[in-house]
Structure formats: structure tokens, C-alpha cells
Design a protein around this nucleic acid. Structure first.
Length: 494
RNA sequence: CGGGGCGUGGCGCAGCCUGGUUUAGCGCGCUUGCAUGGGGUGCAAGAGGUCGGGAGUUCGAAUCUCCCCGCCCCGACCA
């Protein structure tokens, strides 16, 4: 029977996650600590996700641009909170040349002292500073506003502890940066883009998310306030899936991003920034996969359908493979991403496991018996159910199946989150909850920073989100008993 | 940065405590051939290792000692 390729989630969620990512060939460890190689299957997934996001970012009026990887060190220092937030995780370029030095029998290289830079360059941990230095140059008049830019880029944050996709030293992301004439316009922008993220998360990734505001302690360094999406992983932790910041005029002041309004008055712009990253791929794995490997929502699966021909002997092989390729062509013409697995020397069972490991939503089995009956046997990745589809209705049948799986994955994830979300008012129950079942605790919170720290100290849980749609519900803070306006969501987080 | 674990063919490990019958072995994978083919296929033949690095102890080191390096996991920090 089956060889155990993957550590069961119940046994060790951390290893399970790593096993799924490596086994599905999404990524691999790189020679550089904390960095990863995104393999073709993982990159294809990212590209599909990127396209979904990019389309919506453009549709909301933004244009793509590209700013440099390197930022003058002094730029980071211009906005006080921002420095504090990022100083501890920056990679710095100090030299521009290597030189070869004889070392015993061999040669080693070292930075050439002659090439030391006068001002070191920081490898961008995010691009606010370099972008806004340019905004200051481009924006003169209220007629130049709003400025709506987006950039697809890699960034580097020197994290102490990394995990494939969820937190890597270098990662890929999209960062939107906008400038507006009024605070209200900026606020609308911040919420609009959060809505875009929510739509992609829920409709494309089939991941239900909570949306709302971050506390002072959790917001972006340099922002007025931060909005976010939080999703629940299958080990019941919270994972921040996207953020959208109202930057106010903090950076405008620091970089002199000013415009003349219609009345001829000079004013500082109001700015926003928002981003999602390759972490979303991790969220996807953490949100749907099982002990057999990756489970992908059809809308993002690089391979939506794997056709596995089943034959006995050479004569049959030709016939069956022909039929399998014909089915594959038909599905491709219907706009689906299809792989026909006609590899010889591998038995069907092996292929089943392999495609399951890679998360392919639908597998089609086509053997002599099916050919006879004029059908194809479809097998769903999400619940392993098999159902025959009459050959003439193939494309329509598969499409419907994919749509059904997309919906089922969302509902399953939503039910999981609901099952592990609890309203908790008392401290003892609250403290125990995060240890034992774990999940999201909706609890009254006073909003105090010290209180939040004390809670984290005691339970390792933090405020993940103050939901937009929370009911007004005066109560007593779960920790200090002080006045609380309503409940916030607490959880341990990635 | 603290705690734990681990470095032995591509991957996973055994051997180490008690140094020498080890020419360093096993499973998986890989190559070739034949058979097989509706849930991880069988047989046969092969390729592949300076035992993480350095120094030391010893007649002799994968095995003992010291130093260094790297990786994974768990915490503090973070998208």
C-alpha cells in the first residue's frame, strides 16, 4: 500500500506543511539560509495568483511601474517610525567589487576595500522611501493626483526564523503606493484595495478571511492605521494574508511630497500603501491541504485536470492513449489546464498519488472499460469521490465539477474557521483556549497597548483584527476588566 | 539571540557508546533490460561516498577529544 510521503498533520503540523510544500514541488530550500527556490509548479501557482491580482489592480485604475532594488541608507531614516520598524532586518550593500586572493592552493574572494561605497545601499525591505522620493519630484499640482502606482518586486527582510512561503528572507510581492489630495480619498483607496484582496482570497483562493483594522501595536511602521485580512490555517493559527495602510502625511512630510490645491495653497499629499506576497501560496497550502498532499482550488491550479490512461499491453496502449489525448485536447479547447499522463513504466496507482500530491483538483481515469462504456471516470481531489462522466458531456461535466470543488473548498474552510472560533469573556477560559483547542477567540478588549502585550506574554496570542462589522458591544476587557467597546479577534499567529 | 535535534552516495537512515573482519552497509530513488499495467509493480544487472570542515589522540578514526561551519524544529521579532 501507500508509502508515507507526508507526515500526518495531526502528528506534526510543521513537518506536515514542509512535507507538502517539498513533496508537491512548490519550492525547495536554497543554498542561502532563509531563502527558497520557487519551483515551476509553485511558480505557476504564483503566476496565476499574480494575474488575478494584477487584473484587478489595473481595473481599479492603477498602473505598474518598477523602482530600484537598492535604497540609499539615509532614506530609511527619514520617517522615524518606519526606521524603527525595519532597521533590524535590512541587508546592506557596502562594496561593489570582489577581489580574488590566493589562499593556500586555491583562491578565495573578498570585498575589495577599494570599492567601499560612500553611502551604503539598503536592499529594499519595502519601497515607501524610494518611491516617495520620486513622488516628490512628480507631483506638483492637484491635477497630478491621485497618483496610483503598483509594483511587482522582490524584497528582502532579514528574518530570524523562516518558513517556506510563509516567511522567507527574500520574497515576491506586489506593493501599491498611492498619493491623494485628501485623507478621505486615501481612506477610500485603502478600503477599496482591501476589498480587492478579499475578493481574490475568497473567490479565487477559496479562503475565507476576516477583514478589519490592526491595533496600534500591530500596524505598519509609519502608518496612521493598517487594515488587514486574516485567514485561519488548518492548525488553527491566524495568518495575515494582506495589508492595506493609510499612511496619512507622515511620509509626505518626510519626503516633501507636496502639491498646490485649486486655491493655490501648498499641501502635503495623503498616501496609502498595500501589499500581498508569496505568503499567499503558504496560506493556500495551510488552508486546504491534507495528509495526501496539496489541495488546490481549481481557479488557481496550474494543472486543473490530469488524465491518466490505463492500458494492458502495447496494442491497448496505443488505443487508450489516443483516446486520452483526444479527451485532453477537447478539455484544453474548452479553456482548461490539462495534463495527459501517458508516461510508460509507471502504473496508474503511482500516477494517482503523484497528482494528488500536487493538488490537481480533478483526475480523469480512462481505461478499456470506460472506452467501451463511452465514459471517463472523474475523481475529485477534495473528497476522493468518483463519478463517471459520459464522453459526449466531458467538457461540461468537468467544468461543473471544477466549479463545484471551488465552492466546496470555500465552504469547508469557512466551516472549519467557524468551528474553531469562539466568543470568550473570561480570562481563564481565554488563556486555556489558546493552548488546547486553539483558534480564534472573539473577546472584549480595552484597546490598551500594555494590555495587549500582557496578553501576548501570557498566551502567545495577539490581536489579529478588529473586525469592521463587529457589533457594538460594550463589555469588560478579557484581561484587565477595563471598558471595552466590543470584541476583537485574538489568536496565535504565523 | 536562547533551547533542542541533526550533518554518512540524490533522499531517508544504520554503524559511533565498547576504535581494527567494514573492501563503509540498508531502504528509497537513479540507469539498462525484460515482464507488468483499474490505487505507490516485479525480477535481474549496474552507476553513485575525500563519512560537514579543521586540528589532535592513536600503530590504526565515520567511531575518541577540541574548535569551527551548516541545516531543521521550538521560543523572542516579523508580511
Amino acid at each position: 500500500m501507500a508509502k508515507e510521503a507526508i507526515t500526518p498533520r495531526a502528528e506534526d503540523p510543521a513537518r506536515w506543511y514542509t512535507d507538502v510544500v517539498l513533496g508537491a514541488e512548490l519550492a525547495d530550500y536554497s543554498p542561502v539560509k532563509g531563502c527558497m527556490v520557487i519551483r515551476p509548479h509553485g511558480y505557476a501557482l504564483w503566476e496565476l495568483l499574480r494575474d488575478e491580482l494584477d487584473r484587478r489592480i489595473r481595473a481599479t485604475g492603477h498602473r505598474n511601474a518598477y523602482f530600484p532594488l537598492f535604497i540609499p541608507q539615509s532614506f530609511l531614516a527619514r520617517e522615524a517610525e518606519h526606521v524603527e520598524g525595519f532597521a533590524k532586518e535590512c541587508a546592506i550593500v557596502t562594496h561593489t567589487r570582489l577581489r580574488a586572493v590566493k589562499d593556500g592552493d586555491g583562491v578565495r574572494v573578498e570585498p575589495d576595500p577599494e570599492s567601499r561605497l560612500e553611502e551604503p545601499l539598503v536592499v529594499r525591505p519595502t519601497s515607501e522611501t524610494i518611491m516617495y522620493s520620486m513622488f516628490a519630484k512628480w507631483i506638483q499640482s492637484y491635477r497630478d493626483l491621485p497618483l496610483l502606482l503598483n509594483q511587482w518586486a522582490n524584497i528582502v527582510r532579514w528574518e530570524m526564523r523562516t518558513r517556506l512561503f510563509l516567511r522567507t528572507t527574500e520574497f515576491l510581492w506586489q506593493e501599491g503606493h498611492t498619493a491623494h489630495a485628501t485623507s478621505q480619498e486615501a481612506e477610500e483607496e485603502v478600503r477599496r484595495m482591501l476589498g480587492v484582496y478579499r475578493e481574490v482570497a475568497e473567490e479565487v483562493m477559496a479562503l475565507p478571511v476576516l477583514v478589519g483594522r490592526k491595533t496600534e501595536a500591530q500596524k505598519f511602521a509609519g502608518a496612521l492605521h493598517t487594515y488587514c485580512l486574516e485567514t485561519m490555517t488548518l492548525d488553527r493559527k491566524a495568518l495575515q494574508a494582506g495589508t492595506s495602510h493609510h499612511l496619512g502625511q507622515n511620509f509626505a512630510r518626510a519626503f516633501g511630497v507636496k502639491f498646490q490645491d485649486a486655491a493655490g495653497q501648498e499641501q502635503l499629499v495623503w498616501q496609502t500603501s498595500w501589499g500581498v506576497s508569496t505568503r499567499l501560496v503558504g496560506a493556500l497550502v495551510m488552508g486546504h491541504s491534507d495528509d495526501d498532499g496539496l489541495v488546490l482550488p481549481p481557479r488557481l491550479a496550474p494543472v486543473q485536470v490530469a488524465v491518466v490512461p490505463i492500458w494492458k499491453g502495447d496494442a491497448e496502449r496505443t488505443r487508450i492513449c489516443e483516446a486520452a489525448h483526444a479527451a485532453g485536447r477537447e478539455l484544453r479547447e474548452a479553456g482548461l489546464r490539462v495534463e495527459v499522463d501517458d508516461r510508460d513504466a509507471l502504473r496508474p496507482g503511482f500516477k494517482y498519488h503523484e497528482w494528488e500530491l500536487k493538488g490537481v483538483p480533478v483526475r480523469l481515469e480512462l481505461g478499456p472499460r470506460d472506452l467501451e462504456k463511452g465514459q471517463v471516470v472523474a475523481v475529485r481531489r477534495d473528497d476522493a469521490r468518483k463519478l463517471p462522466i459520459p464522453r459526449p458531456a466531458l467538457a461540461r461535466g468537468v467544468r461543473e465539477l471544477l466549479d463545484d470543488i471551488q465552492g466546496a473548498l470555500y465552504r469547508r474552510a469557512l466551516a472549519f474557521r467557524q468551528d474553531h472560533t469562539r466568543s470568550i469573556d473570561g480570562w481563564d477560559e481565554f488563556a486555556a483556549f489558546h493552548d488546547d483547542p486553539g483558534g480564534f477567540a472573539r473577546s472584549p478588549f480595552c484597546g490598551g497597548r500594555a494590555c495587549e502585550e500582557a496578553i501576548q506574554e501570557a498566551t502567545r496570542a495577539t490581536v489579529r483584527v478588529i473586525e469592521f462589522d463587529r457589533p457594538e458591544e460594550p463589555g469588560r476587557c478579557v484581561r484587565c476588566g477595563g471598558a471595552a467597546e466590543g470584541r476583537v479577534v485574538f489568536a496565535r499567529a504565523y
